[in-house]
């Protein structure tokens, strides 16, 4: 948690922890209350029950307080989601193609790879295509996911400042080898990325069209 692997990781983790913390407080509260009542008011200790009138104020209270808390959760979730939809214009455009059961990536100059290589600090927009059934493009460490359809182009974006290798998984069940549909995204130092990109493009006979400085 809070690995800052992508620009979304910390915010998603924070909202998750916010809801988890509130939930744990209430869960512990109601569990302790239940156990306490069962012991304190057991038939042995308390053979005669006491009638307690319904209490409108109490009902209003435990409707209103959760409502306010729930709306705050909704709000934080929505704000975090808005960022995910706010795709920068200068993002590197990668065409992702899913098929049973592998991923492929195409850079703007036509370079094709089966692992994604990106420079640190570079915003990336992936345009998601499928050639057969539905899949879902999922980078757990980056907290991003989107379904991939054969008839509809979805997209998502992320930006990572942390050099490293991160798993890409398929999250929508797609048949026999669904669980083997893994690849990875490598976040590289800008200089390393430039070198890799130039060399690999040259090998494929393509013009390198971008550098890691495209911020």
């Amino acid at each position: 948690m809070f690995s800052s692997a992508s620009n979304f990781t910390d915010n998603v983790d924070a909202v998750f922890l916010y809801i988890t913390a509130l939930s744990l407080i209430v869960l512990v509260g109601i569990t302790v209350a239940m156990i306490y009542f069962v012991i304190r008011y057991s038939r042995k200790r308390n053979p005669v029950p006491t009638h307690v009138e319904e209490n409108l104020a109490l009902e209003v209270l435990w409707t209103a307080i959760p409502l306010v808390l729930f709306l705050s959760m909704f709000y934080f979730g929505w704000v975090g989601y808005k960022d995910m939809r706010n795709i920068p214009d200068n993002a590197l455009q990668i065409k992702v193609t899913a098929r049973m059961w592998q991923w492929s990536f195409e850079y703007p100059n036509g370079l094709k790879t089966d692992t994604l290589y990106v420079a640190a600090g570079m915003p990336v927009r992936t345009e998601l295509h499928s050639t057969d059934v539905s899949h879902a493009f999922f980078i757990p460490a980056f907290r991003v996911k989107k379904d991939v359809y054969p008839n509809k182009v979805n997209d998502l974006w992320f930006q990572s400042d942390k050099v490293g290798r991160y798993d890409i998984a398929c999250a929508e069940y797609c048949g026999l080898n669904h669980s083997g549909m893994y690849t990875a995204v490598h976040i590289m130092e800008p200089a390393d990325f430039d070198a890799w990109y130039k060399a690999t493009s040259a090998k494929a006979g393509l013009q390198p069209l971008l550098t890691a400085a495209v911020k």
Partner: peptide, 10 residues
């Protein structure tokens, strides 16, 4: 919560 759902879905 939307942003959390994106990560947890599926």
């Amino acid at each position: 919560a939307l942003s959390v759902n994106i990560h947890l879905q599926d």
